[in-house]
């Protein structure tokens, strides 16, 4: 406790100096994003590109604003988010379950191992027409497609994570009288968590990519569907608005995942290391 107190005091003390060091960096970071948007606007208005090829950024923002006011944006956003997250949730539960089963039972390993090692590197998106054939074009088939694609990284990460748990850790837990059940829930899975989280961080963007593709192909509401509709009517402002919306959604989901990772892995040394990129 005492140690903690000292560090917070030290942090307060050095704050102005830290701000002086970080602020220019922050400005420099904003600069390139601002420059990109400005370049977009200027290029679009310069007449080098037709408004069809590159609508001005301001027009795209206006379009998003109008969609937001009309409510379409929120319906599409909610639907895409729902499908991606539902698929992701299934991947987490089923993927960790299958991965755990594979590490603990020889039979499960024998059955799933070739399926995973052949299925993981396959471009499963090619099965999309098959999924449509079986399940139609509604939520069920979109979510199924996303699950088929995003579950493999979770299974693989769980297996690798559990394999990597140190023997000494398991032995000392057994030595302290842990039952098999305790062992799994309190030792093996937490120790494998960094790996599993890495798998989940791959799975979530993948679920979103596939959801968007599925929406584009199957139509209906959702950000991907709306983009496709706009594209069919040669409404390129709508297409660019879709990209911005989907980019924002992707960014928010990835950021949320890395926040969750930091929270869950506060004990892990990486949590205190500077983050990558």
């Amino acid at each position: 406790m005492a140690v903690r107190h000292v560090t917070t005091r030290a942090r307060i003390k050095t704050w102005p100096a830290k701000a002086a060091r970080i602020l220019p960096l922050l400005l420099a970071r904003c600069f390139s994003v601002a420059a990109l948007l400005a370049a977009w606007e200027i290029l679009a208005r310069s007449g080098i590109f037709t408004p069809f090829q590159l609508p001005p950024f301001s027009a795209v923002v206006l379009r998003i604003w109008n969609d937001g006011a009309a409510g379409d944006l929120w319906i599409n956003l909610a639907l895409t988010l729902y499908r991606a997250l539902a698929a992701f949730a299934i991947c987490v539960l089923a993927g960790v379950a299958v991965g755990t089963a594979m590490s603990r039972s020889g039979l499960a390993r024998w059955f799933f191992d070739p399926i995973v090692s052949v299925g993981f590197p396959m471009p499963k998106i090619a099965f999309l027409p098959v999924v449509i054939l079986w399940l139609g074009v509604y939520d069920l088939s979109k979510i199924t497609m996303a699950v088929i694609d995003a579950i493999f990284p979770v299974i693989a990460a769980t297996v690798i994570g559990i394999q990597g748990v140190e023997r000494e850790l398991i032995w000392s837990a057994r030595n302290m009288g842990a039952s098999e059940r305790d062992l799994l829930r309190q030792v093996v899975l937490p120790a494998a968590l960094p790996q599993i989280m890495t798998g989940l961080q791959v799975a979530l963007p993948l679920a979103l990519i596939v959801t968007v593709v599925a929406e584009m192909l199957m139509g209906g509401y959702g950000l991907g569907g709306a983009m496709m509709t706009a594209s069919r009517f040669a409404n390129s402002t709508g297409v660019f608005a879709g990209i911005v919306e989907i980019a924002a959604l992707g960014y928010a989901l990835v950021k949320a995942m890395s926040l969750i990772r930091r929270r869950l892995l506060a004990w892990h040394p990486e949590a205190h290391a500077p983050s990558t990129v």
Binding site: A28, S32, V213, L223, M227, G242, A247, V277
Partner: peptide, 21 residues
């Protein structure tokens, strides 16, 4: 300094959204 914010923004973009563009 110039590129990393752009990478950070575009990396999570579901690449399939670029198909119509």
């Amino acid at each position: 300094t110039l590129l990393s914010p752009l990478v950070e923004i575009f990396y999570p973009l579901p690449k399939s959204a670029l198909i119509p563009v």
